[in-house]
Amino acid sequence: MNVSIRSKNLRGAVLGLVPVLLATGCGNSGGGPSGDSSADTIANIGSDTMLQLAMAWSEAFKLAEPGVNVEVNGGGSGVGIAGLINGSVDLANSSRAFEEKEAADLRAKQGKEPLGVTVGFDALSIYVHKDNPLQELTLEQLAGIYSRDGAIRTWSDLGVKAIPGAQGDEIIAISRQNNSGTHHYFKEAVVGKKGVLRPDCVNQNGSADVVNLVATTPNAIGYSGMGYRTDAVRILKVAKRAGEAAILPSIASTLDKSYPIARPMFVYTAGEPAAHIKKYIDWILSEPGQSLLAENGYVPLPKQ
């Protein structure tokens, strides 16, 4: 008698527990609110590259439109898109386009098409320590530094003789965690779709982390958004190929496409956006929204 009660209770506890685990375990780790709480709250989650920008947008929009609350969170483009697919995110920031399999997931889960709007551009900048005398690199040299089969492993391979404060000659290649949108783009743009990044990259988890580590490491080189520049680091000019002019990332050089590693930034909704989200997107595309791009170190859309 006693035993049977016990086993029944145990089974009940197990059955009760599993859904709880599923709910907590499968939840979106970006931690977005589920959109049902208030119609005028926009869960805006995604790209770390766009995080500064998205927060500036959200604050400015709050002043312009006090009734709408935009809750911004980072985590990466993939986090935002995953949230959009499972319905916990209203507006996903992404520094890469929706992938076909992600679009298929969205169709399967919600029966909606992803709807993307280009909101600006980001010039991926190559950062070195401020004491590093190097001024410019070609894309091939960058590939030589970052790809697995690349031959450039020391600063003297690049003709840099001595970096004040550096220990030894080794190039410390700083990268992003391997599924961030920035990593994705950098890999494709620099070492190519089929290329492989060197395995001993030091991977950082955020755009600002990369710049901070470069700032304290004279041996380092890293890539991050233009907006994360500080006084402790320097941005290198990049040339498409040897012999061509090396270009500094800037608004002008991004828009005329002379800077070789710049990319568009998107916001995505699942299907047609609700009225208050549509209003937010329209505001982002309007003059007050676009002016925040340049202020925060991004590149606004060309004026029509």
Partner: peptide, 9 residues
């Protein structure tokens, strides 16, 4: 910790 957030479910 670094990768699960962006790995597609």
């Amino acid at each position: 910790a670094a990768e699960l957030g962006e790995a597609r479910q």
